[in-house]
Design a protein around this nucleic acid. Structure first.
Length: 406
DNA sequence: TCTGGGGTCCTAGGACCC
DNA sequence: TCTGGGGTCCTAGGACCC
């Protein structure tokens, strides 16, 4: 503890750089270039109305993600626009994560195209972190056909920064001892967690480099950004980041949204959009064998302000008619504001997720030894989702009474 | 073709409980 | 009459990320 009673954030300062951050380069565009040789070497933009992903050839001309299609075309008239093929990206992502899983048991997926890997303790069997990273990049290239950048450091934060700095198709190892020399000259935008708003606040006070942040007392940052962000940014600027690589993280919400564009905004039209969203979301819930308790309606208005309305049920569900009933109620409650401000986007998210009807395995207290035989039985009877849950229950939650399915 | 679609985490206030 | 001290859960909004 620090003198004022907070938990100190650099408990771990010893040790090697053993956290890898692996991040595919221009993922969607790279898949398109892989699958269509005529696109290689040319500026490729995935997305029609809006840029979802731009190849490095297009980025060199100033095209950025989330940019409007018209501006992208103006900057780069010879770009090839490609409609996204989400299933191809999902498949490529799975193949890459297989390579990750073959590298180390400690993989934490961050999104479809990036993950943290903890390779501490693998030195004897797999070599140094740098050797592992070299091999990982080679394997992803040969097995999946995609370029991937890797950062290696002692903290998640720095590994993430290093992979970004090394892009494209790069590898950067930040050895302990060189960390602040690497970090401090960087512009604050490089810090994972500083976005547009925070950067603007900092710039307004003449703060442009990470070293500027590091030179400030924590209190000053807290006064500027609030308690949570202030402390967080201050710690990161000193490379204090104790977050471990966490395996087995599960999705906490499932949602879908639709921008309305020029389509009519009448009540029946909005209801039709809502029905479509509910249908998509509940299908995805059931496919994932999850159920949820909180139904959240998300709205965006003409002036780009946003609002959310939510309702939490007593019992989790993935039932279409139940969720539609709740969603309609939330939409009805929002109609006054919609009439006033004009709606441009409708979204629906289900949160507070739980597993649906998954078997929980209770082992006797005295059970020690391997559980492989038991787990194999569970897998045969109930499938791999149940197996995951059983392992989770044993490792993280101890032994507890199973909650009976409804 | 002004601004897609999918997520995470944090905070603050209020209701409610013991 | 005024008011403790500990907690959970829900709702709404904001910032950030890919």
């Amino acid at each position: 503890l620090t003198t004022d009673g907070r938990v100190c954030e650099h408990l771990f300062v010893t040790g090697d750089a053993t956290i890898l951050h692996a991040d595919l380069d221009a993922f969607f565009a790279a898949v398109e270039q892989r699958d269509d040789p005529s696109l290689r070497g040319r500026p490729v933009i995935v997305g029609i109305g809006v840029v979802m992903c731009a190849s490095y050839e297009a980025r060199a001309r100033g095209v950025r993600g989330a940019m409007g299609g018209s501006e992208a075309r103006r900057l780069c008239p010879d770009a090839v626009f490609v409609a996204p093929r989400l299933s191809a990206y999902t498949e490529a992502s799975k193949a890459v994560f297989e390579v990750f899983d073959d590298t180390t048991p400690f993989v934490e997926g961050i999104s479809v195209d990036e993950a943290f890997l903890d390779v501490g303790g693998l030195r004897r069997i797999a070599g140094t972190p740098e050797e592992i990273a070299v091999r990982l990049r080679r394997d992803v290239r040969s097995r999946v056909g995609l370029p991937i950048s890797v950062g290696v450091a002692r903290t998640k934060f720095l590994a993430k920064v290093a992979s970004a700095v090394s892009k494209p198709d790069g590898l950067m190892v930040v050895p302990p001892g060189d960390e602040l020399a690497f970090l401090h000259p960087l512009p604050i935008e490089r810090v994972w967690g500083i976005g547009a708003k925070t950067a603007a606040k900092l710039h307004a006070r003449g703060i442009h480099r990470v070293s500027d942040i590091a030179a400030m007392p924590e209190d000053a940052l807290v006064a500027m950004l609030g308690t949570g962000p202030g402390r967080h940014i201050h710690a990161l600027a000193h490379n204090r980041d104790a977050r471990p690589v966490r395996t087995g993280r599960r999705r906490r919400s499932i949602g879908s949204q639709r921008a309305l564009g020029r389509s009519p905004r009448t009540a029946p039209a909005l209801d039709a959009v809502l029905v479509g969203l509910v249908d998509r979301v509940t299908r995805r819930l059931r496919a994932a064998r999850r159920v949820g308790r909180t139904v959240m309606l998300r709205l965006r208005f003409d002036d780009f302000t946003r609002a959310t309305r939510s309702h939490t049920l007593d019992q989790p569900t993935a039932d279409t008619s139940t969720i539609l009933w709740i969603a309609r109620g939330l939409l009805a409650a929002s109609m006054p504001r919609i009439g006033r401000d004009g709606v441009t986007l409708v979204g629906l998210t289900i949160a507070n997720l739980d597993d649906d009807g998954v078997v929980q395995l209770m082992l006797p207290f005295h059970h020690r030894g391997p559980v492989d035989g038991v787990l194999d039985d569970v897998k045969d009877k109930f499938g791999t989702a149940a197996l995951t849950r059983a392992v989770l229950l044993g490792r993280d939650e101890g032994i507890e009474m199973p909650r009976l399915p409804d």
